[in-house]
Each structure stands twice: as C-alpha cells, then as structure tokens.
Design a protein around this nucleic acid. Structure first.
Lengths: 230, 230
DNA sequence: CGCTACCGTCTTGGCGCCAAGATTGGCAAC
DNA sequence: GTTGCCAATCTTGGCGCCAAGACGGTAGCG
C-alpha cells in the first residue's frame, strides 16, 4: 500500500545505503535523466512518499543537492530543480575543461593497455553510432569515453569535482550534439584525443582535449538563451 | 538554560539562515579552524546541543559535510572529522592549481584598479608580516590574496569548487609556511603573480601561479606522513 | 466593476520519541 | 591469568506531529 503510488521515481535504488545520501543520489539521477524538469517544484512530502522515506531525510537530501547546485531552495517556499542558462553551462564547461586537461595529461602518462583497448572500442562504437545517426547512444558513449580517461588518471579529487560538473551540464550535452555538424566534429575531436593518448603524448592530449572542450563551449554559446520567464 | 553549556562551538553564527546549511557552515568553520581535531568523533546530539538545534538538522549538516569530504560517516557508527594525508593534500592542491590557473588568466584580463590596489596592499602587508615573522597573519593574507583574485575573475563555478578545496587543504597551508625558507619563497611567488596581473599579462600570470602552486605542492610532499594510527 | 482584505489551505521549519545496531564493561568459565 | 560471553549503555536510524509562513480564492467594500 505504501509503495504503490510511486509516481516520479522508481523507488528501489536506495537499498542498503545511508538514507540521506541514498535519497540524494536517487533524486540526482531523477533530475539528470529528466524525470523532473528544470524549475519543477520538489515538494518534500511527495518526494518522501515516492522514495518510501520521511520528510526529514528528503530535506537533508535537498540541502545536499542544493549544495551541488542541482536544486534551488528558497526559505519557506520550497525547492525546485535548478535551471542552468547556456551562459552558466559555458562557465561549467570552462571549469570542466581546466580539470579535464589535468586528467588527460595524467592519463597520457599512465595509459595502460586495458584502458587503451576500452577507449579504442568506445571511439569505434562512437563512429558506428554516428554513422547510424544514433545520437542518444553517441552521447552515452561520449560520457563513457571521458569517464574511462578519468578512471585511468586515478585522481579522486578531480573525479569528484568532474562528477559534480557533469551532473550540472549534462542537459546541454544532449543539446549540443543536435546542432548540425556538431556530432561529426565531436567524433573527430575524440579521435584526436585517443590518438594522443595512445602515443602517450601528454602535450598533444592536452591540446586535443582543450580543443575539444573549447569547441563544445563555442557550440553551447550558440544555443540561444531560453525565453525569459514572464 | 538551553544555550549555557555551549561547549565546542559558539552558537551565534546561524542567525537568519536556513538551518541545515547554516549548521553545516558553522560546523565547517569549526573544523577548518581546528575546533574539532581530525578523526574526532562528531556525536549528533552533542552538536545539536552545542548549536542550539535538533538532531535531524545536524544529521543533514553531517551528510552535507560528508559530501564536502570534511567528515566521514560510517553506518551506525557515526561521523568523524576527515583527516587528509599529505598525499591527498597534494592531490587537492594539484586540482586547485588547475582551477587557479584558469582564474588568474581571467583575472589578468579584467584586472581593474580597485582589485590592483587591494592586491598590492595585501602583498605589501604580506611582506611586512613576513619581515616580522608573523606567520599566522601572513597565512591569513595569503588566503585573502587568492580570494581577491578569485573575486576579480567573477567565475561562480570555480569560486565554489575552490572554496571546497580550500576548506579541505587549509590545515596544510598552516604547516607549509612553517617549513624553513618557505615563507620567503612564498612571498616572492606572490609578488611575481601580482606583477604579472598588474601588467595584464595572462601568460605570465598563469606561469607565475603555476610555479607558485607547484612549489606549494612540492613543500607539502616533503611533509612526512603522520604516524599510522595504532 | 475593480480593488482590497480576509480566511482557508498547502508546504515548510522545528522538535521529540521510539526502535535497531554498536560499543564497552563486567562476570564467569576454562 | 586469560578468554569468551552477556548485558547495560550509548548512538544512530526512522518517523510523525505541531507551529509558522506563503499562496490562492472569495467575499466584502469602495
């Protein structure tokens, strides 16, 4: 009777983990995957019911996500899903660029065979999906590629920060790839990064990564600001 | 009667702000300023009493700070103050370097007269405190200098991330400056950064900042790992 | 007919209680 | 003398209730 009206979030995810963090992660997932739209109100009791928990936990999770900039909370007025403007997305990507450059340098130095194989496979798959115009799958592989490099760099601090930034800007990842010609350029850029990594050339990897993210930023900047709320 | 036994934290800070965030910030301050030592246990009820609030709020704040890596929480075992090893501190500083470079470039481009005056004054004060061997004041000015540059860059995303990183590594800031000869080198490095900024030379500012932080990282690496807990 | 003030409702903010798990100390057995 | 077990205690985990503030609709007044 309790978990029947699970509208919004399928509640299973929080098995075994600590509640506030678990609820926050479930909520983050729901937000980044679009279950909750930008500016949508997040009512504590509804969320508590959806997730099979109580309001105190939800409130903690909302504070948690506010800290991540994924929700905005106003005193006595509740929380809503944070909406990022293209300008903010560009700023986030700029920051991400600075960190990804650090990561890709480290990755180039310690690029092992397993990672090389994984990355090569991912880029091959990206090429295939691009040829088939399957942009959703392409975007997913894009994320996987960056994640593989990140894993190879073994840098906990940067992993954490990049995860934060990714959650904030992921919505724009789906939008940029829809810009005509963007997917083709993106593919070429990823191939350049991979080539540099395979050559263990940190400098080349850095400039390839920088070029890639500058290109993404430029694309985001072309996306028009959404209509002013009135 | 309620606020009398305020042992640990002086409770005034949380006036007017939302509770979980306010409590988390008070706690963060207490941790970074050393009121609570690394590995010290943080008992929810004690904190609630100290801060004049209830356990639910404290729990939220602890989750919040766990996300910031300032506390560690184990299921059913409570929270403790996170202890950072020198290796982790070096990693954090590496990350900070990547972001500070981004910031200092922007700052060099938009370095206005007010900021120039402020930074010049700060560096002058650093020189004076260094001459007087007042390392505590020197360290405080050091933080102020970086904060002034950060403010000038007007980059919300990076501000947030650098604030996080600063809170994590601040303990080491006090330790590095105690290394013989470190303060003098630090002063020279800051003067180089200031000179580059005054000249609006982004490239010079970047390399000066990079040199500065590399130097800090090298110093942190010389600090011995603390005794293994036994 | 339009504006304002009031009232009801909804949601957040704050708090305390009860149950479950972990830790520690004492006690007994080997 | 040492070791293992058990119980008391402490702390966390989870939950619901009550008060305060914001929002919206309606009625009354100008």
């Amino acid at each position: 009777m309790q978990a029947l009206f699970t509208q919004g979030i399928s509640a299973p995810a929080l098995s075994g983990r600590r509640s506030i963090v678990a609820v926050a992660e479930a909520l983050r997932r729901a937000i980044t995957t679009g279950t909750y739209a930008p500016n949508e109100r997040l009512v504590e009791e509804d969320l508590a019911r959806s997730l099979g928990t109580n309001r105190a936990v939800v409130r903690g999770a909302l504070a948690y996500l506010e800290h991540e900039q994924l929700v905005v909370r106003e005193p006595n007025r509740g929380a809503r899903v944070r909406a990022f403007s293209p300008a903010e997305a560009a700023e986030i990507l700029e920051t991400r660029a600075a960190l990804e450059v650090l990561v890709v340098r480290r990755a180039a130095e310690r690029f092992d065979i397993a990672t090389a194989r994984a990355c090569t496979a991912i880029v091959a798959a990206m090429r295939a999906r691009h040829a088939e115009h399957d942009l959703a799958a392409y975007t997913e592989l894009n994320t996987q590629f960056h994640r593989a490099i990140l894993a190879c760099a073994e840098h906990g601090t940067v992993v954490r920060l990049l995860t934060l930034l990714h959650a904030q800007a992921v919505r724009y990842q789906y939008r940029t790839v829809l810009v005509p010609g963007r997917a083709a350029r993106s593919l070429a850029e990823h191939e350049a990064i991979l080539a540099a990594l395979l050559a263990h050339d940190a400098d080349a990897a850095e400039s390839a990564m920088r070029a890639h993210l500058d290109s993404v930023i430029a694309t985001v900047r072309t996306i028009a600001e959404p209509r002013h709320l009135g």
